[in-house]
Amino acid sequence: MLDLKHTLGDFEDSLRNTRKSVLTMASFAQQNLGSAVNGLLQRNEDLCNDAIAEDEEVNGLERSIDQGGMEILMRFNPVATDLRMVVAAMKISTNLERIADQAVNIARRSRKILKKGHVAETALVGPIYEIASGILHDAIKSFSEDDPALALTLFERDVELDKLHKRAIKKYTSLMEEDTENLRTYLNLIFIVKCLERVGDHAKNIGEDAIYVSEGTDIRHIGPSALEEDEE
């Protein structure tokens, strides 16, 4: 982070507001995801309804961040870290909007599950959510606190999330054969863990953007090794 402020106060304010909006949006996305999953685990339909209703806020923030970013590009012609921050903010907002959409999908599937009887294996969603929400939390933290080292930890954690996701799908698929009475519930649970796996991917994208802001290196599709190459 740079110590000095911009000579143009308006520029400084616009950049600060953009960061603030991204963090507000992230907070909504995290909250909606938590509501959707807790609605399922606690069999609380109101929480599911909250996740669906709050999605409008997230959509509005995505539009507002894009509009603010475009205005900064047009008015102030940012360069270097400022340019990378504005571009990353716009990309992060897209990922956050998709995460909130996944929360809505989870909430809708959960409401269907809640209409049926409880199945014990619903609990498998809990650990998967813990990892996905942890990745999301630290991705946002790496952006807000300019901490690329934290962002780098997300890659291994996403691999762990993928493993748990595959294991859960295998389990639910076999249960669909054994317990045909709850077939629809297991199918919905498969969709839910798939949504959480996608949340992990979007959160990892946010971590990549945080690294781009801090280091100026685009590690997408290359992975952390891109940073090592830069150091050579």
Partner: peptide, 18 residues
């Protein structure tokens, strides 16, 4: 230089901080 300058002083100048 304009997307990822190596020197902090360069960045401060090109981004309008002094």
């Amino acid at each position: 230089l304009f997307t990822n300058p190596s020197i902090k002083q360069t960045e401060e100048y090109i981004s309008g901080r002094f």
